[in-house]
């Protein structure tokens, strides 16, 4: 990566940091959008290596189940405890299931799964592709007339798009399980009452938005980390820089887009 021009003519220029930072951010967003277009074009043309998609689904999805379960479980515990405490004060303990499940399906499920996959998978993809870049493996692909977008990005993207909703729903169920445990132990609420309240509260629309959010999360994670990996040049130390950059960008974007989707679908009218 190039040295950022912070000092010019021997004078420290703080705005140059901002300019360099802003410029590289804009460039990355452009690269990401372009890469997304290329990837979608290849998918529409049917140029898909299914065995590789399967392999990537295993790497991206199956191996994330454990970390997603642990985070969803403890987020579920903490959140349910807070909700149960407040609702019991109002004597509305039968509504605990509804409130917990709404929070899970609308916000906590997609966010938890998204953030964990961003940390586990986004960083791994950025590190892998950056390594391939600096060891000229990407150049070798180009000489063999193989587009890295088709060979590397398409299978990872499809795997991400297939596995992310599964992981989000899974995170939601783990969270619900935590909610049931807390409701039983802290508020003495039977499981049947809890689930009744869940059924009455959650609508089809919540599932639709849930899927939209996980689709967007998958797109953010795979596209940003691939674009970062494929645009990094230099030496071994740049692998670390690219990894950090991928995590920061994917997580930030997940939170931003999560809010955008929420505000478009749930804002009070």
């Amino acid at each position: 990566m190039q040295q950022q021009p912070v000092i010019k003519n021997g004078i420290f220029k703080p705005y140059l940091i901002f300019e360099a930072w802003f410029g590289s951010g804009v460039r990355l967003c452009g690269q990401t959008i372009l890469l997304l277009f290329h990837t979608i074009r290849y998918i529409l043309q049917g140029k898909i290596d299914w065995p590789e998609v399967f392999r990537q689904s295993n790497m991206i999805g199956v191996k994330s189940f454990a970390v997603v379960a642990i985070t969803a479980l403890f987020t579920g515990f903490a959140m349910s405890l807070q909700i149960a405490r407040e609702l019991v004060l109002f004597g509305a303990d039968t509504a605990i299931g509804g409130v917990v499940s709404l929070a899970l399906i609308r916000e906590i499920g997609p966010i938890t799964a998204g953030v964990m996959v961003a940390g586990r998978v986004g960083s791994a993809i950025a590190a892998e592709l950056t390594t391939m870049m600096i060891t000229e493996q990407i150049d070798a692909l180009k000489v063999m007339r193989i587009d890295p977008a088709q060979y590397l990005v398409v299978p990872r993207y499809l795997a991400g798009v297939f596995m992310m909703p599964v992981l989000s729903i899974y995170a939601m169920f783990i969270g619900l399980f935590a909610g049931i445990l807390i409701a039983q132990s802290a508020a003495n609420l039977p499981m049947a009452t809890f689930l009744d309240s869940v059924k009455q509260t959650i609508l089809d629309r919540d599932f639709h938005v849930h899927f939209i959010k996980s689709f967007i999360n998958a797109t953010i994670i795979i596209m940003f980390s691939c674009a970062i990996g494929l645009s990094t040049r230099g030496g071994a130390e740049d692998v670390g820089i690219a990894t950090t950059r991928a995590i920061v960008w994917t997580m930030t974007m997940i939170f931003v887009f999560n809010y955008i989707v929420t505000s478009l679908t749930y804002a009070p009218r």
Binding site: Q137, D139, A140, M144
Partner: peptide, 23 residues
């Protein structure tokens, strides 16, 4: 022939050559 070999690390020798023949 790259100076630094530039073989795809995730593929075997056979798969590396097969990839070159892909098109």
């Amino acid at each position: 022939v790259f100076q630094g070999s530039a073989l795809l690390n995730s593929l075997t020798v056979r798969q590396n050559l097969s990839l070159a023949l892909r098109g």
